[in-house]
Computed example of a mutant assay.
Amino acid sequence: MPYFLLWWLSLKAAAISLWLLPPLLVLLSFFSVGCFSLMHDCGHDVLFRSRRLNRACGFLFGLINAMPQLAWSRDHAFHHKTNGNWELYRGVADSHTVDEFLSSSGFQHKLYAGLRHPAMAIPGGFYYLAIKPRLDLLLGLTTRSTLKPWANKAEFNDFVLSNLITCAGALALGWWLGYGPFLGIYAAVLAMSAAIFIDIFFVQYIFEKSYARNSENWEYLDGALKGTSYLQLPAILRWFTADIGYHNIHHLSERIPNYQLRLCHERNQHLLADVPILKLSTMLECSKFLLWDPSVGHLVTIASLSDGRAAEVSRDSAQAVQQPRSAQGAGTEAGSAVPGSDG
């Protein structure tokens, strides 16, 4: 497997000169992103036809990224069921409403914006992969809180086993290869790979006029077509990310495997007129849309609040909130357009 070959080359390179490491670390990080994308597909039960094979491989792909897969997949399934309903799911950045933001202090404003700066994806990504699963297990075992990271016995067993293998593997490999080189490379790869897929995941939902309704005005298909984007990526990045840039299609039918997403996208252009199209060059611009304004039904920037809570945006969007578009049949068409899309 290229991932493990790159690990071997990285350790050899580190023994010669640290200046040889950066290109190998970048490649390792992208292969780690690929493994996370395949773990994601296993969670949807679509990478293989066998449910057991999806389960086993999902667990192994999760180990590569130090992430217990079963609980992650259940949480991800909730995101799919509620995407665009920001009353139930506030997105990857846990966005505040305009009123919540305005009611907080100036220091809290700066802290809120600072924690959601694109550069925070690196330390945030390291925390998400390297620390959070271990901390969640520790807190789940030592506190009486009903908010456990696992929902049932199967998830608990998966959570414990994944964490035990991750920690034991890190200790054993550190003892064998040297804790300095191993942990240094491992930490860098986890931080970089998590930053990549956090940023890619972020712009799938966070962009100008992204569909963001309350429960009363929410439509599932509008959430898929207007609340997710089509992220145009170069061919090499499409390969590493398992074509997750076709995210609108993925949300229309999560039963479509990654290797069919592009074909399904091409065959259903007539359904995708309202889908936002993003590019790598526009990703940074999307990071400004940090607040949810329920009165207009989409995301706004902090800067827009100085202009009367974005009055001009409200005028453009009021009708869309009052008359949610119905897209009956779109999900069925998208899911049936590709042979074998039932997994």
Results as ranks from 00 to 15, higher is better:
A13H: 02
S17P: 11
L18C: 10
W19G: 10
W19M: 11
P22F: 10
L28A: 01
G34Y: 02
L38H: 14
M39T: 06
H40D: 04
H40I: 03
C42Q: 13
V46F: 13
N54S: 13
C57A: 15
G58R: 13
F59N: 05
F59W: 05
L60G: 05
L60E: 00
L63W: 13
A66K: 14
M67A: 11
Q69K: 11
L70T: 00
L70W: 01
S73W: 03
S73R: 04
H80I: 12
G84W: 00
Y89P: 02
T97H: 07
F101E: 00
L102M: 14
S105Y: 05
G106V: 13
Q108F: 00
R116L: 03
G124I: 07
I131L: 10
G140T: 05
T143R: 11
R144N: 15
N152Q: 04
A154W: 15
F156M: 05
D158V: 06
L164S: 15
T166E: 15
G169D: 02
A172H: 12
Y179P: 07
I185K: 00
A188L: 11
V189P: 10
L190V: 13
M192D: 00
S193E: 00
S193R: 08
A195C: 14
F197D: 02
D199W: 13
V203I: 12
S210I: 02
E219Q: 15
Y220T: 10
Q232L: 06
L233K: 07
R238L: 03
W239N: 04
A242P: 12
Y246E: 09
Y246R: 04
I249K: 05
I249N: 04
I249L: 08
R255A: 14
R255I: 10
L261P: 13
L261H: 10
L263H: 13
R267T: 04
Q269M: 06
L271A: 10
L272T: 01
L272P: 00
A273R: 01
P276R: 01
I277E: 09
T282A: 10
M283I: 08
E285Q: 14
C286Q: 05
P294W: 02
T301N: 01
T301F: 01
I302G: 08
A303Q: 14
A303N: 13
S306H: 14
R309D: 01
E312S: 14
S314V: 07
D316K: 03
V321T: 09
Q323N: 09
G329C: 09
T332L: 14
V338P: 06
P339Y: 14
G343I: 09
